[in-house]
């Protein structure tokens, strides 16, 4: 690879297609949204805003069931007063070693707390939500998991929502 090429962001869609192709599998069907994304203006200054955290990196907390690796469309409710020491990470599609050392790299609860403490952010909602990426059925995510999460997040009445995929 050339220097210039190396500076480009990794194209994970192309990488995945190449992997599937090399294994003789049919092409992976990525979600492609049509039309303009929905838009809701932010009404609150960040310093006063309540943020809801949603993450797909396979985070669970001690005492909860871990995720499994085959189309797991379940989710976990994380009490945001939890100690970061009680957070766990499991996932099949990325190297979890750093996330297990410091969950803030995929689930920035401690980081959000620090921003609240210095008054850069208003508050964190009482509950955060986590799930497992790598769900092959886009239909399952679109029709089941996403609507359930949207409702749970709305129930927290946040001003903004931060989604952290991996």
């Amino acid at each position: 690879m050339t220097e210039a090429k190396l500076a480009e962001p990794v194209d994970y869609i192309a990488e995945t297609r190449a992997t599937y192709d090399s294994l003789g599998y049919p092409p992976y069907q990525w979600v492609k949204s049509e039309g303009q994304p929905p838009w809701t203006p932010v009404q609150t200054r960040l310093e006063e805003a309540s943020v809801a955290l949603i993450a797909s990196g396979g985070i669970y907390q001690r005492g909860q069931h871990a995720f499994h690796f085959k189309d797991d469309a379940s989710y976990r409710v994380i009490d945001t007063s939890v100690s970061c020491d009680d957070l766990r990470v499991t996932h099949f599609a990325y190297d979890v070693s750093d996330a297990r050392t410091d969950p803030n790299v995929v689930f920035p609860l401690g980081t959000l707390r620090a921003l609240v403490a210095e008054n850069s952010l208003g508050a964190i909602t009482p509950q955060a939500f986590t799930f497992m990426g790598g769900i092959y059925s886009a239909r399952k995510v679109r029709d089941e998991l996403a609507p359930a999460l949207v409702q749970r997040v709305a129930d927290q009445r946040p001003d903004i929502a931060l989604l952290v995929p991996v």
Partner: peptide
């Protein structure tokens, strides 16, 4: 992948990064 919100054990850098990201709102 696996570092969407920063490098491990760098709380100050994580905070700077996240603040910068939230500025997108």
């Amino acid at each position: 992948l696996g570092h969407t919100t920063g490098k491990k054990n760098q709380p100050e850098a994580q905070k700077r990064l996240l603040k910068n990201a939230l500025g997108a709102f």
